[in-house]
Nucleic acid binder design. Structure first.
Lengths: 198, 198
DNA sequence: ACCTGAACACCGTTCAAGT
DNA sequence: ACCTGAACACCGTTCAAGT
């Protein structure tokens, strides 16, 4: 006997399970139904289509992202913390990165609001807030894409700069790359505010 | 009579045509063969599989990216120019953005080399060059993803920061967003080098 | 050398039906 | 209310064959 009625929580959980153990694209309507012991059409009772399913999963992941408290420090530290939290979720569920970021822009206003308020406090004008947020968002979009891609396997053709530098790769961790990136981004934003003030 | 033998140039051209007029995912082996008036299997004579086809398209697009001449100015101006050129190609062929960037890392060393040499000249140490390049690359990856996505359609729920700021959107162009992003990134990198020197 | 045809294992999705 | 089964129009790809 196949367990009783499905709940949204069970569906999301199963979806995350599939995404985690297999590759991203392994999540299909049919595959998910199989995972839950139903016929290939069972999901369509709970969810309108595949994009709605992904929305469901993304909403769950978004809820886990903590928003730094104003008491936590100056605007740039809080921005950095928020970016780190989002990145954390992207790394935990790399499969839904795209939908997660899309949803952040459209349906879920919580994080977008938090980010923009931090930027306003930082001293950006209204239009600059939009562009600054877009810059951060774009970077995060890139992160989720880059996250689980293989390292640039050195062809080791002697003589070129790449070949020489690539030998340094083993001493750098994913964390190093992330921190360099966020620090650079935040430093760039800080500099823009400073220049605007003068 | 279906034209004589196909050439790689014709295939790439047809692929770009399909990508341009339809959505990204419209490019399929079968669709491309149809476009060229052959049977669904014809492409497999010229190309090992779909990823090889995309490689072909990406290689063509990569060749069009110009590398700024050392005489063109200081390192940061040249980095900015190179990023602009890459972004240009991403916007021209949004469909192959992912493969294009992947190829830049793996098979095609030309642009990677140029970028890293610019960063070396800028005064970055070996490891910092790698991380700085990764930051730029990540940003570009995000760009290609964000490029043709719809604007954050305002739900217009009164009271929140987002709703207020979104009204400013119409006065900003895609170019504004791009320039803000690159400038921020380059400013951040400049600041890191400066700090390293002191 | 340059393909074509049939077939397999996958998709998302619609539509009608079953308990 | 909670599904199931069959069917349609798509995929990428293998394998054997046709000219």
């Amino acid at each position: 006997m196949p367990a009783p009625n499905l709940t949204e929580a069970e569906i999301v959980e199963a979806a995350l399970r599939v995404i985690k153990q297999d590759v991203v694209d392994a999540l299909s309507m049919r595959r998910l139904s199989r995972e839950l012991g139903r016929s290939q059409m069972a999901m369509y009772y709970y969810v309108a289509d595949k994009s709605a399913l992904l929305d469901l999963v993304a909403a769950a992941a978004l809820g886990d992202i903590a928003i730094p408290d104003p008491a936590d420090g100056p605007w740039d530290a809080r921005l950095r913390a928020l970016i780190t939290n989002i990145d954390e979720q992207l790394r935990t569920h790399p499969g839904v990165g795209e939908v997660l970021l899309d949803r952040m822009l459209s349906t879920d206003r919580r994080i977008l609001n938090a980010a923009m308020e931090i930027l306003l406090e930082g001293g950006f004008g209204d239009e600059d807030v939009l562009m600054a947020y877009a810059t951060v968002h774009t970077y995060l979009f890139g992160r989720y894409r880059v996250i689980s891609s293989p390292p640039p396997h050195g062809d080791d053709r002697a003589g070129d700069t790449v070949a020489r530098l690539v030998t340094r790769l083993p001493s750098l961790s994913g964390r190093d790359f992330f921190e360099f990136g966020v620090d650079t981004l935040v430093a760039g934003l800080r500099e823009r505010v400073a220049r605007r003030r003068s």
